[in-house]
């Protein structure tokens, strides 16, 4: 998963430079792909899917903590996006528009599922145990750090599932995926003040649930 863009509004300057995406999407090229997709060109739409599949999948996965559900919902998101692509007028970026579809689909799914949470967590990549921020959180007395990281992962996901959908979403979009407040507000259909309030409350809740793991 690529490193998300830093949030310059609230976070201090990062200790190491953030690696941005090697190829930033060209707006003109994207408009051309959208136009062709609106005319039914599936090859053009395939390219659009490839551009955003990881981020859309990641958002849904962090909301559901279930790989299988995330897979189904991500596919359904892109299918619905294609079926409704003729209604896309370009008022927002295509990325924001698809994100909104993904978010609405996921929240509807979670509300139908109610409290029947079943986690199916993805594995941590190799870089996790070498991430200095994560290493600092793991006890030095633990002989195998990867075991502790797995436990942290499970506790973190369980705590995320205790949040309401809207609070979980704002933490996912900001603290996990690094989206700025204004973009989150556009995706969620609320104002920036609401985003900040929900973020603060969600962090308070998570901190309470994870107090044993935060030194």
């Amino acid at each position: 998963m690529s490193e998300p863009a830093p949030d310059h509004e609230t976070e201090p300057a990062p200790a190491r430079p953030v690696i941005r995406a090697a190829t930033a999407p060209d707006p003109n090229e994207e408009q051309s792909l959208v136009r062709r997709s609106q005319q039914g060109d599936l090859a053009a739409y395939d390219e659009l899917v490839r551009r955003y599949q990881e981020r859309v999948y990641a958002t849904i996965y962090h909301m559901t903590s279930n790989h299988e559900d995330a897979n189904d919902l991500a596919q359904e998101t892109f299918i619905k996006a294609f079926q409704a692509i003729k209604t896309f007028k370009g008022g927002s970026s295509f990325f924001t528009w698809v994100y909104r579809i993904a978010v609405n689909k996921t929240i509807n799914f979670l509300k139908q599922r109610k409290n029947r949470t079943h986690m199916s967590l993805n594995d941590l990549d190799f870089n996790a145990e070498h991430d200095p921020d994560l290493v600092a959180l793991v006890s030095d007395k633990t002989p195998r750090r990867e075991v502790s990281l797995a436990e942290l992962q499970e506790k973190l996901n369980a705590a995320m599932q205790k949040l309401s959908e809207s609070h979980r979403l704002v933490v996912t979009l900001h603290d996990v995926q690094g989206l700025p407040h204004d973009e989150i507000a556009e995706i969620m259909g609320c104002n920036i003040g609401t985003v900040r309030s929900r973020l603060f409350y969600a962090r308070q809740q998570l901190q309470a649930h994870l107090s044993d793991y935060l030194k």
Partner: peptide, 22 residues
């Protein structure tokens, strides 16, 4: 807490998952 939340960025789907997604 924000450092801990970075752990979720390291969660990855199965290898080559996105090869066939689109």
């Amino acid at each position: 807490l924000r450092r801990l939340l970075k752990l979720k960025r390291h969660e990855q789907p199965p290898p080559r998952y996105f090869n066939d997604f689109s």
